[in-house]
């Protein structure tokens, strides 16, 4: 009996210690957290920039059979590296890690198809946009979902943890059961294998999926508000933010993102989507029309 008591005491103490460490840490938390980013000068001096990109989201950010990062986001990242005159260290990220990676200083820039939302803007700083996006829903040909009300009880929609599609559905359609995955690779594999009646994600992504794979139709090509995709930096990293903004504006003069589209996305989407998707010089098309 004595031994059991000892054991309980030890485990109890272990529990208290674990909680204690967390508690003590929390007290220190707020002060240090915001000095983790590196300014432009520090990045140039170190000779390397850390850029968080997807490694499993073709054609935006993926790795080819030679181990090289490729895609629309990567094409832009490559240019950033050249113009800063530094080496690029690509950090493979998952959707749900993007904010975390910036806030903990593990990357300098996130260029992982990051949709600008007010909630995210409270956590990180977005530069000017370089792509348009909305949400879309792709489903199997034999049961095309054209309206979310078609999703019956007991049926699931696949989303990727940490994406705008997840946030949107959690907020606007809480009655729909979601099947969440943490990587694009996992979500696509599961969807192909028949998990979930539909997959909700950025419309660019679901359109690409339906084009590249037989047997799928994008039943809903625009859900929620029209948003944009932009690079993001750690909150408060003003020097890097303004450098990025200047870069995007000046790249607009040479129609850089159109070239990017033609090099990386045209294979998938054809040229029809070029003007709907590309945002050049940080100026959103709607704003242009207003002028």
């Amino acid at each position: 009996m004595k031994n059991i008591l000892k054991k309980i005491a030890a485990t109890g103490l272990a529990a208290v210690t674990a909680i204690g460490i967390i508690g003590a840490g929390t007290a220190l938390a707020s002060e240090d957290a915001d000095t983790l980013y590196r300014s432009v000068d520090e990045i140039i001096e170190s000779g390397t920039i850390n850029i968080g990109v997807f490694s499993d989201k073709s054609p935006f950010g993926y790795v080819d059979e030679y181990g090289e990062y490729q895609g629309y986001d990567v094409y832009f990242a490559q240019r950033i590296g050249e113009d800063l005159g530094v080496e690029i260290n690509y950090v493979s990220t998952e959707a749900a890690n993007r904010i975390e990676y910036l806030q903990t200083g593990k990357v300098d820039i996130i260029l992982a198809n990051f949709t600008v939302t007010p909630e995210r803007a409270e956590e990180v700083d977005f530069a000017l946009p370089y792509m348009n996006v909305a949400l879309g829903v792709v489903s199997h040909d034999d049961n095309v979902i054209t309206d979310l009300s078609q999703v019956e009880e007991g049926q699931q929609i696949i989303v990727i943890s940490g994406t705008t599609a997840e946030t949107y559905l959690v907020k606007n359609n809480p009655e729909i059961q979601l099947q969440k995955f943490d990587t694009y690779a996992a979500a696509k594999s599961a969807f192909e294998n028949g998990t979930g009646v539909a997959w909700a994600n950025d419309n660019t992504e679901v359109i690409a999926f339906a084009i590249e794979n037989e047997g799928y139709t994008v039943g809903i090509d625009s859900l929620g508000s029209a948003d944009t995709i932009a690079p993001a930096v750690t909150k408060g990293n003003d020097s890097l933010l303004s450098w990025l903004n200047d870069e995007i504006v000046s790249l607009g003069e040479e129609n850089f993102f159109h070239a990017d589209y033609e090099a990386t996305l045209a294979d998938t989407y054809g040229l029809d989507y070029e003007d709907t998707l590309v945002v050049e010089g940080g100026v959103i098309a709607a704003a242009e029309e207003a002028e």
């Binding site: 490694s55 499993d56 790795v63 990676y101 690779a185």
Partner: peptide, 27 residues
């Protein structure tokens, strides 16, 4: 892999993704 180290399983996922079209059974 779950904290973002690109090790054998993650590389595996990347390969599956990059070849989704040409080789759908790569998984």
């Amino acid at each position: 892999m779950m904290i973002g180290v690109v090790e054998v399983l993650k590389v595996g996922q990347q390969i599956i993704e990059a070849n989704r079209k040409s080789s759908p059974n790569a998984a």
